[in-house]
Design a protein around this nucleic acid. Structure first.
Lengths: 391, 391
DNA sequence: CTCAGTTACGAAGGAGTCCATCATTATTAG
DNA sequence: CTAATAATGATGGACTCCTTCGTAACTGAG
């Protein structure tokens, strides 16, 4: 008997809604005087005062000194206490384990990186995760008790309980119950998500896709993957397998990289991980063999990209991943391939976030999680949260 | 300066929320006594009474005679006045124009069909639309004034303003401003949507996909198309071109039908539109040539289906359209093709709604539109609606 | 330095909504 | 006809929000 949500309700519920409304007005904004909060929440001035006082009592909001220099009595200013809690984001890759800690507004306060190798044992990799987070906390004078949410990004498919269903990039990673293993280390929610999806999220929040609600993030590198933003939110799919267009043989995504690796111009003895970069660089200078190899590579890339774009009809396609540094070489041919088949051609842009994009996306996902807890319109009490304990 | 929504607000806003909560409890349910409404809305009994009285005054709710046969004072019962407004759905196809009128709960009260031909001039087709709707209204003793929303479904791409961007099935249909042309005929919102999408919606509301929030609807027939339900809602895409995977040459969707048409077993002189049905029927009896033709057809169908499924990872794929009557023949080979590539295999089901599915979907879309107007949490006044005028 | 002008603060009174409680009423079972 | 049952209707109290008005603090001109 899952009743439809109460949604309306008590007087106290109204107060709660107004408090959330005030938080929403204050989040990520400059310190605001009461009158500004009032106009943004639609409340009257006295009511706003009462709400803000309550939020100050709970530790959600703090007062800052008034701004001088204007005529009239100076207005008291308030701001969201973004430092009253913190979020951690982790990126577990084959070669690196990155971590970052941010405040509740998503501003990064510390960041660390640990080098690992693809064959690093699982236990060591997990230990590296803990060291990376501990390092961030130490750098910012925090403890795990200050963390409200931890988000882990990793390669591979992750089910909704935080288990790695399948990962090709890290040995023995498949089947690992990441949320379970790391959940014990932190006294808060620990969420696990696919890395490409988190990167996609970061692009819509602080990257080139800011403001777009329908975005396809195309991860191009030694492996290819996609992250989908639909209606402004991460799309996971029913079985957490959304965006796996590369499984379709017709896309040839798994073998596409060979067009770059096997290019004749690559000097003998180049390490395999550098070959693609070499060819892309050569193509930029106009080397005919390199250009031809890139064209063949993009031919393959474009099939899966077009399938994704035709299915979803996004506003924007963002190129990310290791090869996105060579976007100037890749974008024009990709654009012409897509234009040939797309009814509605999306914009194409290259990511500018760099290697931290997954960690940033993890932080953004944690912030979203907080928002969901706070603003879920149809849930019961939403306000207390850890704060009541930490103040 | 689009302010973030007020979301909280006034006392009257709280009353409004509670009124909506009561409507939600009453919608589509049996007549309910006050105590049941109270427990579903979370309100106290006296408050519920007040809210329901107000809703009766506005015409949203009506009282029905108490149910006898139980001990104690009989409880007054209330129900949503689903007949206080009506919704119209229209399906404009190449061969038929269908219309239906339903009450606010989506129960069909009248339905009509007009035969047209692919080469019927645009003006005549539009006239048929008006006759079809007028017929429904006449059958149920209504006028256009009783309509709260009209939804038109049609083949082709439809932009968000209700213009047909492109349609291959109906000549001179491309570029037509359907919403503009038909909007003048009705004193209410007129929405236009792609027919496959509406069929998909109908499946999730009253068909085999009821209860699923991630659904791919595969329209198979002389033309192929898809309708996507993501997170329980129709996905249109940024440029209204979502689901057009058939544009990708690798899917060969446009030529797939020839495998059925050109099958050697089709008797000389069979009209083209019956050839496919003949082959599918023959395949059911085990005719080797027919089975082989169907296999080849499904080979082509499966590529686009797999691309859509891999991109979205739905819970369920519904086969609809003319050929879905032959689902027993088509499903097994399609299933094996998908299982070969899908990481997470969705369920496969055949539609059971039949030819009215687009009209039903149009009605459901109209009901959704009403819901959005009513329950949009973040909008200002939501309650008045046409009722205040019609009571 | 003083005073007018401006802007924000704070308190008081009023209105609307919700809740808990209790006496009353209508029906069925025996 | 009486007892038991279950819903109704009315009263008073609590809470939140709004409007209004007098007061406080700061700027800038004379």
């Amino acid at each position: 008997m899952s009743n439809p949500p109460p949604s309306g309700g008590d007087l106290s519920r109204l107060r709660q809604l107004n408090a959330l409304s005030a938080i929403r007005a204050l989040r990520g904004a400059e310190p605001l005087p009461l009158s500004a909060i009032a106009s943004r929440t639609g409340l009257s001035r006295p009511s706003t005062k009462e709400v803000v006082d309550e939020l100050m009592g709970l530790g959600w909001v703090e007062e800052v000194p008034p701004a001088p220099g204007s005529v009239g009595r100076p207005a008291r200013r308030y701001r969201f206490r973004s430092g009253s809690g913190h979020l951690a984001g982790v990126d577990i890759g084959a070669h690196n384990v990155r971590a970052a800690v941010a405040d509740l507004d998503g501003n990064i306060v510390a960041e660390t990186r640990q080098a690992v190798r693809p064959d690093t044992p699982v236990a060591d990799r997990l230990a590296a995760v803990e060291r990376a987070v501990a390092g961030c906390l130490a750098m910012s004078g925090l403890t795990t008790g200050n963390l409200w949410t931890v988000v882990i990004g990793t390669t591979g498919l992750v089910d909704r309980d935080g288990r790695v269903i399948f990962s090709a990039a890290i040995p023995n990673w498949s089947g690992l119950d990441l949320a379970g293993l790391l959940g014990g280390e932190f006294p808060c929610d620990v969420l696990v998500e696919n890395d490409s999806r988190l990167a996609a999220l970061a692009e819509t929040r602080r990257g080139v896709a800011r403001g777009s609600r329908e975005v396809v993030f195309l991860h191009i590198g030694r492996r290819m993957g996609t992250g989908l933003i639909i209606d402004g939110r991460l799309h996971r799919g029913f079985g957490a397998a959304a965006g796996e267009i590369g499984m379709l043989p017709e896309t040839r995504w798994k073998s596409a990289i060979t067009h770059l690796h096997d290019c004749a111009i690559v000097p003998e003895g180049t390490p395999p991980e550098d070959a693609a970069g070499y060819v892309l660089a050569a193509a930029r200078t106009g080397d005919p063999a390199a250009v031809a190899a890139v064209e063949r590579y993009v031919d393959e890339l474009a099939v899966g990209a077009a399938a994704t774009v035709l299915t979803l009809d996004p506003e924007l396609v963002v190129l990310g991943g290791g090869f996105s540094r060579s976007a100037d070489v890749l974008l024009p041919p990709l654009r012409s391939r897509l234009e040939a088949v797309c009814l509605h051609m999306p914009e194409l842009r290259a990511s500018t976030l760099g290697d931290e994009c997954v960690v940033l996306g993890a932080i953004d996902y944690a912030a979203d999680h907080l928002d969901r807890q706070l603003f879920a319109a149809d849930t019961g009490p939403a306000l207390p949260l850890p704060l009541s304990a930490t103040r």
